[in-house]
Design a protein around this nucleic acid. Structure first.
Ligand SMILES: [Zn+2]
Ligand SMILES: [Zn+2]
Ligand SMILES: [Zn+2]
Ligand SMILES: [Zn+2]
Lengths: 162, 162
DNA sequence: TTTAGCTTTGCTATAGTATAATATATCTAT
DNA sequence: ATAGATATATTATACTATAGCAAAGCTAAA
């Protein structure tokens, strides 16, 4: 019994709830770990979560400075580094950009589906892909440490539109 | 009967043969397609093939200019673009770098295993990984166009060394 | 509560990666 | 030979990321 699940972020979903949930989880998680989710870091997380599309560091910087602030690149990069370390965001290597993690806390190996039209990303955690990579690695004579799986294509919504 | 294959480039393999083979295949393939493998493009391919480690565009540029030439970035980027278009090299997204394709000609979806110690890359073409990605995409509501699979870790040679 | 040590942020400069735009040269096919 | 297409040269600039050091803020021990 395998049901068809469409977990690509819908166009009209309650995104305010996404943001709120992400921030709440971040607060909880950082408290548990004794990590300091400073206002700056929290603000960057909020900015990354403004959409489900990967956001570049300099785009985040622009948003941070939209009110006339004068933050410099190292500031946003350091905040992003903190968020990465604590698994609150993921880096999308093929875009040099960052996206909020949908299941922060539990360290995990994720795969990313990135729509070339709407830009949105779906994060999955497929055991099957992980196992296939592991098997291929074994045949190749290789020990997996950090798998990067980023699939570009189109989400169904955008495909249906054309 | 699944034998253990170790296709990571060995430390003492005949790399001159790798280079020669790659260049020969490139010549053949470009002739077949009526694509112009100019001396410049051929030279860049040769430079990318100097090792099995991904090479950055600016590193390639330095090699091109080692004899006092004055090539500028667009020159090497255009050559790399040509080589990519014809499947003679692959771009490694997670490194912003390029590596020679081991099976040029037949368009293919490849996975890359990248050793963090020796830097070498093994290119594989696992149906299993492709299928697992396809299945996950279907569940996610997504149409795959360009899968990026880049696995960082250690090759057995480097692991055995430590 | 002061002090010392650590963490975070501010700031400047610079390194590294990639492309836009335009001019010139070279090749291909009449 | 000439026109059109393709490839290369050159300059400038955009985009991405980090090094290094100073200042500010937090924490815990004395
Ligand atoms: Zn949302
Ligand atoms: Zn995640
Ligand atoms: Zn070789
Ligand atoms: Zn290949």
């Amino acid at each position: 019994m395998t049901s068809i699940i469409k977990n690509f972020p819908g166009r009209h979903h309650d995104h305010a709830a996404c943001i709120e949930s992400a921030l709440e989880q971040a607060v909880t998680l950082c408290r548990e770990r004794g990590a300091r989710l400073t206002p700056l870091r929290r603000r960057v997380l909020e900015i990354v979560w403004e959409s489900h599309a990967p956001l570049g560091a300099y785009d985040a910087l622009q948003r941070m400075n939209a009110g006339g602030e004068r933050n410099a690149p190292p500031t946003v990069y350091r905040a992003l580094e903190f968020l990465l370390e604590h698994g609150l965001i993921h880096r999308i290597e093929s875009r040099n950009a960052f996206v909020g993690c949908t299941t922060p806390g539990n360290s995990h190996k994720a795969q990313f589906f990135i729509c070339r039209d709407c830009g949105n990303v779906a994060e999955t955690h497929s055991e099957e892909i992980g196992e296939a990579i592991k098997a291929s690695a074994t045949r190749t004579g290789f020990l997996v440490e950090k798998p990067v799986v980023e699939i570009s294509g189109r989400c169904l919504k955008c495909h249906d539109d054309e």
